[in-house]
């Protein structure tokens, strides 16, 4: 079982976001260079995943993927650790967040 997110990427457009549920979960955003953000839609996120991803609208060439899960915080921290250990640093959106790298690595 992979601990990384493996779903296919979808172009981030207003139309495609219309299909995203307003639910709790985690998501990744990428540009042409790869993943630039890992984040989650939690209990304080209006309109859940759809609302959080809409914050990225307006930046051209972005793609996204998500997982709907009630365990959004534990899944988020797992994804960040795996990414950071694979790339040597957390994704760009967390560059200043002071995250500990942690020990979870990609399988």
């Amino acid at each position: 079982m992979s601990v990384s997110m493996t779903k296919p990427w979808t172009p981030l457009t207003e139309e495609s976001l219309g299909q995203v549920p307003g639910a709790l979960g985690v998501f990744e955003v990428a540009d042409e260079g790869g993943t630039i953000a890992i984040d989650y839609a939690g209990g304080h996120s209006p309109f859940g995943l759809r609302g959080r991803l809409q914050e990225w609208l307006g930046q051209p060439g972005l793609r996204f993927r998500y997982e709907r899960t009630n365990a959004y915080l534990s899944r988020y921290r797992e994804l960040v650790q795996v990414f950071a250990n694979e790339h040597g640093a957390p994704p760009r959106n967390l560059a200043d967040a002071g995250h500990r790298l942690g020990h979870i690595r990609p399988n």
Binding site: M1, V3, T69, N70, A71, Y72, L73, S74, R75, R77, E78, G102, H103, I104, R105, N107
Partner: peptide, 23 residues
């Protein structure tokens, strides 16, 4: 020690509690 070669944390086990999780 957590940095001992051969020791690894394979995954988070996602449960009913999300902020404090087992591995």
């Amino acid at each position: 020690d957590a940095d001992t070669p051969g020791f690894s944390v394979r995954r988070v086990i996602h449960t009913l509690r999300s902020g404090h999780y087992p591995t």
